[in-house]
Write a protein that binds this DNA or RNA. Structure first.
Lengths: 340, 340
DNA sequence: CTGAAAGCGCTTACAG
DNA sequence: CTGAAAGCGCTTACAG
């Protein structure tokens, strides 16, 4: 074992000394580009291993003006739907040699702003938006400065079907199912402080799908911080009034347990009294009794594809756009015939 | 509006020109340290704003040898228990001016190794381990090179009670409850490919707690990839055999829905035939019928405290160690008297 | 209070 | 195939 240099600091110069070559040569070996003799390469590699040398990312970035970091902006990390998305970004980025800087906007515009500033200072090569940004103009600015940006909400335009949103097919399928089961009046339930326009877009899609099916849609907002009893009474009022709603559509997966707890507290029987559907799937939705019907998409796959696209663009070899799987409706026990 | 420089690239030199001061002065204003006249400061700040200048993190890091990045190593991002932990790290780091580099080891030693190498190259100032590392020796190496590292599994030694693990109190409380309810034989259920020794440690804790309580503990491993029917039969065999187990303790929150699905498939009635407890809480556990009893700790708070400690150490002002809340046992409907 | 200059650790033309 | 040198964009003593 060779003695470690006393300072402990191992830079390229130190490696060059150890291997008795120039700094340039070490760089060529380490980066893998540039011609080197096999013997030279071997000597350098040995020195690298012996000293435990790791090139400094900041020095490299400064020189090459590529940080090899991609940022991901999460509107709200507390919302579990973003986790598979984050995983997808992670997976691809890591595999392609990029590091991932994660920022959580915490549903707050000021936090988002600070976070974006920090991403800008880090000179991330690319940015993935996991959801709608609170301040789109700031995103535009970054784009103008040359940052590559992709967003989950990038619309997919299918000229044949006129579909411009990944969620439309799943939403339509759900509404169709409900119509066939005799539902004529349903409620879309979201939290009062819904982030951005995601909830609104879903409501729009539902309204659009239901119009031609003869289903009436109304909107209910609940406070997720309230206790189950209070929310239960609110839901109960909608399900048990004179012309009641016969199905509840929950706007996000994160809200579902709250709502189910409230439904339980109000002793509403699903699906006999009222059917239940939520956006977003999980193993808990499957394990729940009755098993919960969902509108879901494979966010992991979508994030992977998006990130692949981003990295392709960064390398100047744009990927052929992988077709995104649209959302599907998965019907389970929580949906049944409308009570007569 | 001033015209943007044609190249679009805005560096400190460009700002200096715009404000007609030296580069050094701009640096002093931007970093906030160093004496400057109010008029100078104002002029520089105006130039900064006008040009949209953001100092380059890599240049700064190179110069100061502080990256202002902290890394977090997640053993498995697919495991939802890590999410609140990640949030806690995020929250504190962001508030203190640090960026967070997230790496997911994907339960794989090779991925972990690569990820750690990358963190080393980024020269992260600190590293938070969200769980046990697959290769502890690698962690030790990083520590030796001067990286500040804190780990969730850092034992808390309470000399008074001899408790050396945050989970011990919750585990003991659970075992005590079960004993009082007449349970004499319980099973600890974990996935076959359990990560590191987290599961083993839990099993140890349970065994330790149960010994003095006269409870028998056995271990059952299941394949989370198997279908509910198969897992159900496996569980059923343990719950309905001659000297049956009267309570199941699920090793992680992620496994709980799988297990509950299997229990449902096998038509085992909880808690009448068998009580059920899991490590890790969520709103779904609360909403589930029967509501699931859990051993839980506030990972968000723990991560926050840990990160605060890390940043304190980085700044050379070690925090007084905030006491970590230990795990608690939250009893809900899924736990009842042992069948006679 | 301000500026000129050195240097952080790399990569990349440019010579040889 | 290899080396010497310039320079990426900052910060920090050092003078003034």
């Amino acid at each position: 074992m060779a003695k470690r240099s006393p300072s402990g600091k191992v830079d390229i110069r130190r490696v060059a000394e150890e291997a008795s070559v120039s700094i340039a040569t070490v760089s060529r070996v380490v980066s893998g580009r540039g011609p080197v003799t096999d013997t030279t390469r071997a000597r350098v590699e040995r020195a690298v291993k012996r000293l435990g040398y790791r090139p400094s990312a900041s020095a490299r970035s400064l020189r090459t003006s590529r940080s090899m970091i991609i940022g991901i902006l999460l509107p709200d990390l507390a919302n579990p739907v973003f986790v598979p998305f984050l995983r997808g970004v992670q997976r691809v980025a890591q595999a392609e040699g990029y590091s991932v800087l994660v920022v959580d906007a915490q549903r707050r515009a000021d936090v988002e702003r600070l976070a974006l500033d920090r991403l800008a200072e880090q000179r991330v090569d690319g940015l993935v938006l996991a959801g709608a940004a609170r301040d789109p103009s700031r995103i535009e600015e970054l784009r103008k400065v040359g940052m590559q940006i992709v967003a989950r909400s990038d619309r997919i335009v299918d000229p044949e079907h006129g579909v411009d949103d990944l969620e439309a097919p799943g939403t339509l399928a759900m509404c169709t199912s409900l119509a066939e089961l005799g539902h004529r009046r349903i409620a879309f339930v979201s939290r009062g402080d819904m982030l951005g326009d995601a909830g609104d877009r879903r409501l729009e899609l539902i309204a659009l799908s239901c119009r031609s099916l003869g289903i009436n849609v109304e909107q209910v907002t609940v406070d997720p911080g309230a206790n189950a009893g209070d929310v239960g009474r609110e839901i109960s009022a909608v399900v048990r009034r004179h012309s009641p709603v016969s199905a509840l559509v929950c706007s996000t997966h994160g809200l579902a347990p709250t709502l189910l707890g409230a439904i339980g507290a109000a002793q509403i029987v699903v699906p006999r009294e009222c059917s239940f559907v939520t956006y977003g799937d999980s193993e808990w939705a499957v394990a729940y009794r009755p098993a919960i019907s969902v509108i879901t998409m494979d966010l992991f796959a979508i994030a992977s594809a998006l990130t692949r696209r981003l990295i392709g663009a960064l390398r100047g070899v744009p990927e052929i756009d992988v077709a995104h799987e649209p959302a599907r409706f998965v019907i389970r026990d929580s949906v049944g015939a409308a009570p007569s």
